[in-house]
């Protein structure tokens, strides 16, 4: 069942002057502020080491900001302890850059893990079991077209398949916010496009607010200009006046600072040499 369009747009993720300083004098994140609203897709670009992963881990409460405030689902989570974070995180799906799949567990156990461990699913005193969650696990794996690999171990899968298991594990809880850290890094272009197609499909069917860290401008271009058509079961290009175009925005990080926030068109006309590295730059590429 596709989730109903929410009646009112709400602020899903908000950073307010967030700084992260691990060692004195060197800010990993430097006064970063932005807002992401429900249903939006945000593409986070930036050179390696510019602070993208740190930003994602702040949004998950895995790292604490040194200064500033973080709001998740409209709630100020800045001072939350680990127990309160467990609750917040259970509404966030995540795909880690290094995969983060448990290599001692099978694919099925990996995907079942959040359903069996997150407090939100223990409510009502009924503890879920491997059997009770199996249909959900199967569905999540079918979605990423890995329904037949339930009993395999992550080490037996290819890089692209591991990413897909990660996507299944993130989406099995039907999260409101999905954070993808470099979902296409290290993949060949064809596999990378299948992964992006999955993200577009997931965003369409569940209306998930999506944040994607990537360094491939093709990923951003696809996400910004295509939608999934459930009737035809394939991607289709959005018409140039579509309101959906506005829902995908780009952000560029440079040395811990947020140096750009805007649409693909705005990104394309940027004259900044660093920022323009991440755009298709039709103007300069044609000439």
């Amino acid at each position: 069942m596709p989730r109903q369009e929410p009646k009112e747009r709400r602020c899903i993720l908000k950073f307010e002057e967030v700084s992260v300083i691990f060692e004195e004098g060197h800010a990993i994140l430097d006064r970063v502020s932005f807002e992401i609203w429900s249903g939006e897709t945000r593409i986070l670009l930036g050179a390696a080491g510019s602070g993208k992963t740190v930003m994602m881990k702040i949004a998950l409460g895995l790292l604490r900001p040194t200064h500033g405030k973080v709001y998740v689902f409209g709630e100020d989570v800045t001072g939350f302890d680990e127990r309160k974070w467990f609750d917040v995180r259970s509404y966030i799906g995540v795909l880690f850059q290094e995969g983060g799949l448990f290599d001692s567990l099978t694919v099925e156990e990996n995907v079942a893990y959040p359903l069996l461990n997150q407090a939100r699913f223990m409510a009502g005193g009924k503890k879920p079991t491997a059997e009770s969650v199996r249909p959900d696990v199967q569905e999540a794996l079918n979605f990423v077209e890995l329904g037949k690999t339930m009993s395999k171990f992550p080490s037996e899968l290819s890089g692209g398949m591991r990413r897909r298991v990660g996507i299944a594990r993130g989406s099995v809880t039907d999260p409101e916010l999905f954070l993808y850290d470099s979902p296409t890094a290290g993949l060949d272009p064809i596999t990378a496009n299948t992964i992006i197609t999955l993200l577009i499909k997931d965003r369409e069917l569940r209306n998930t607010t999506t944040v994607i860290i990537t360094h491939r401008f093709q990923d951003g271009h696809l996400l910004a200009n295509f939608r999934y058509n459930p009737e035809k079961e394939k991607l289709e290009k959005l018409p140039s006046a579509s309101p959906f175009l506005e829902r995908t925005k780009f952000m560029v990080m440079q040395n811990g600072r947020l140096v750009f926030e805007g649409t693909e068109a705005e990104l394309a006309i940027s004259r900044d040499p660093y920022i323009s590295k991440f755009s298709m730059h039709p103007a300069t590429k044609v000439s």
Binding site: L60, F96, G100, N117
Partner: peptide, 15 residues
């Protein structure tokens, strides 16, 4: 730790 499994544990509800 380096394959982010420890982060994943915290993200997925375990200490």
């Amino acid at each position: 730790k380096v394959s982010e499994q420890i982060d994943a544990m915290r993200a997925l509800g375990t200490d």
